[in-house]
Design a protein around this nucleic acid. Structure first.
Lengths: 184, 184
DNA sequence: AACCTCATGTAGCGATTGCTACATGACTAG
DNA sequence: CTAGTCATGTAGCAATCGCTACATGAGGTT
């Protein structure tokens, strides 16, 4: 393997964590390079441009999160809409997933203003989420699975927004209410 | 009234619409000044700095939206959680409100990365939403009103995110599912 | 008439942005 | 040994950013 290709892999891994920790505001070329321990010059030697760096780091993160979600809530168990909503909500507010959800909000906002590569990436990741949700909805109990999945995804994403504009307490009260509703 | 104060009012009104139409990506000082039909130099004569311009424009928008929401769904009618969720969801995906919801997502993302003045503004507007929602929940039918309100707000905000990462179709299918659920 | 505040224009500063031109040593294939 | 690719450093460019220093005329006050 090339030195270059090794560095590509290493840098992406480091930068994925950097993005998780600091968000998209600390993501200028020079800042990314510093975080990865290379010069900005070399970052652009390893990757074509900043867009490619961000795209690969986000892909890496999305893959990791998908794997964690897969094991955190196995797909062989099919749930009602209320039950899956409550379980998934508890999941995404977990400290393990929360940094990703924060970054997810920033990525969607970047996508909203058409900033490459986020427009495409947001769609990909969103699609992945929908598939994950639908696979865990019991067809017997949920007639409109696409509609239910879209509703659940909206709510999960919304919890991340709620944290920013309403604080931790609001998020907890929402999750608690969802769990209560899934029992009644 | 000063020329300066008149201009402040006029410029804010124009810029509020500009932000609604173009989002926060077209919001550099020079771009804002051009949109308002003044020089960047004068924009900073009317306002202390860019932060004040954005803060006032966002406040203006929030006020307008609050008024529209107030009349669109009067507070004298108290609803169940499912019913309010469905009605409010239909409301925020309306063409009248959608540009605001798009901007709202960008503002929250800016708040998430601590960008002034959005951190404070997002909290204010979010709080206003929560009050609006709680005032329309029937205490007899909804035991945990704060929890229900937080849940509804998360879902409404999430619909705006869903539009970006899943497209118009997903949003419609979610709203339809919510309306179906509120009838059953 | 002298002065002063208000309103506005011209010009530019220092920082940061993404990105590039050019040089150079190391190693490798012929 | 020579030619050439690989890996890296130094330096900088053009654009944009938020913001400011300075000048100037217009109109009111004393």
């Amino acid at each position: 393997m090339n030195v270059r290709d090794e560095q590509r892999a290493r840098v992406i891994a480091v930068l994925a964590n950097h993005l998780l920790a600091t968000g998209l505001s600390q993501a200028s070329l020079r800042q990314l390079a510093a975080a990865a321990g290379v010069s900005d010059r070399m970052l652009l030697y390893y990757f074509a441009d900043k867009t490619e760096v961000l795209a690969q780091a986000m892909q890496s993160l999305a893959g990791g999160m998908a794997a964690k979600l897969e094991t955190a809530l196995p797909a062989d168990q099919r749930l009602s809409q209320a039950a899956l909503t409550a379980k998934a909500a508890r999941l995404v507010v977990d400290p393990v997933f929360r940094p990703f959800m924060r970054l997810w909000v920033e990525a969607i906002a970047a996508a909203a203003r058409g900033e490459p590569p986020f427009a495409e990436i947001a769609r990909q990741i969103g699609e992945g989420f929908l598939v994950w949700i639908e696979a865990r909805l019991d067809p017997a109990k949920v007639p409109d699975r696409p509609g239910a999945a879209a509703t659940i995804l909206a709510l999960l994403d919304g919890l991340a927004l709620l944290e920013v504009c309403g604080g931790e307490a609001r998020v907890q009260s929402a999750v608690t209410a969802l769990e209560a509703a899934s029992l009644g």
